Simulated scan of single mutants.
Amino acid sequence: MARIVLLLGLVVLALFWALGRRRGPTGSGRSPQAPTGRASEPRTMVRCARCGLHLPQTEAVQDSTGHWFCSEAHRAQGAAE
């Protein structure tokens, strides 16, 4: 009988320990909420005409024909066939 009580006590202690670790340092037990405001506006993505990589338009290079490229090297090579 003492073994059963000891085993149940260990199980209860293990559960409390696991729940305590899950809560983290705040002890609230709730996960942090995402900010309600938008951090930034969505960015327009473009595809490199040479290799097909998708990247933000602000980081891409455009040639005179209107094709977008991921780098100056790919712009110099031109669009892939």
Rank of each mutant, 00 (worst) to 15 (best):
A2E: 15
M1L: 13
G66V: 00
G52K: 06
A60K: 01
A60W: 00
W68G: 02
S71R: 01
A80I: 05
P32E: 14
E72R: 08
R38G: 09
G52C: 04
R47V: 15
P35K: 08
R38P: 07
C70F: 00
G66T: 01
L8A: 15
Q62I: 09
V11Y: 06
T58W: 12
A39L: 13
A49T: 09
S40F: 11
G66H: 01
E41N: 03
W68A: 02
G20P: 02
F69K: 01
A14I: 04
F69H: 04
L10H: 13
S40N: 11
H74Q: 11
V61D: 12
L7G: 14
L6K: 12
R47W: 06
A49D: 10
C48M: 06
P35M: 10
R75A: 08
G29Y: 04
Q33G: 15
A73E: 15
E59S: 14
F69W: 09
W68Y: 10
M45F: 02
E59Q: 13
G37L: 12
P42G: 06
W17M: 09
A76L: 12
H74R: 02
G52P: 05
A39W: 06
F16P: 03
G37T: 14
G27Y: 03
C48H: 03
L6Y: 09
D63E: 06
R3I: 10
L53P: 00
L19C: 07
